[in-house]
Amino acid sequence: MDEPRSGRMSGLRCLRIRRAARRLEFVGVLIACCSAVALYRYGAWAEWTNLTLGCWAVFAPFLLGFGSAQAAMWTHVLVGLCVATIAIIQLSSGSKAQMASSTKSGGR
């Protein structure tokens, strides 16, 4: 009698992992598209969007209920942290460059 129940549990877990993978693929496509557009038309909007998507990837496993699927959860968290960190670095370097250029032009 335990076999069907454990089979159902395995099926539910597999379904959660598939859904988590689809969500991560969707977020990955959005990040890639945003970054590709930023190559042609750069703006802080691209980094803010990537920062938001990275934060979403970090919190999605817990908000959407697949935090118990360890592999999917850690993949989301690590990818999200990498994307968010790179976006923060880009935002801070962009603001430093902008401050440096305004300082140079203001002194003339």
Rank of each mutant, 00 (worst) to 15 (best):
M1R: 09
M1C: 03
M1F: 04
D2H: 11
E3H: 13
E3P: 09
G7A: 10
M9Q: 11
M9T: 12
S10N: 13
G11Q: 14
G11A: 15
L12F: 12
R13D: 08
R13W: 06
C14D: 11
L15H: 15
R18P: 01
R18T: 11
A20I: 02
A20H: 08
A21F: 11
R22A: 12
E25W: 15
E25D: 07
F26I: 04
V27Y: 10
V29S: 05
L30W: 01
L30N: 05
A32G: 02
A32K: 02
C33I: 12
C33W: 08
C33P: 01
C33F: 09
S35F: 07
A36P: 00
A36S: 12
A36C: 05
V37G: 07
A38S: 06
Y40G: 15
R41E: 05
R41S: 10
A44W: 15
W45K: 13
A46L: 08
T49L: 13
L51S: 03
L53M: 10
G54K: 04
G54Y: 02
G54A: 04
W56E: 11
V58M: 11
V58C: 08
V58P: 02
A60N: 04
A60H: 02
P61D: 05
L63N: 06
L63C: 07
L64R: 00
L64V: 08
L64P: 02
G65E: 00
F66P: 00
F66N: 03
G67Y: 12
A69M: 01
A69N: 04
Q70N: 09
A71D: 05
A71R: 15
A71E: 06
A71M: 11
M73G: 01
W74D: 06
L78A: 03
V79H: 07
L81H: 05
V83C: 04
A84Y: 03
I88V: 14
I89R: 15
I89Y: 15
I89S: 13
Q90G: 01
Q90N: 12
S92V: 14
S92E: 10
S92H: 14
S92P: 06
S93L: 06
S95T: 05
K96M: 15
K96A: 15
A97S: 13
A97L: 13
M99W: 14
A100P: 03
T103A: 14
T103P: 00
K104C: 04
K104L: 11
K104I: 08
G106F: 14
R108A: 09
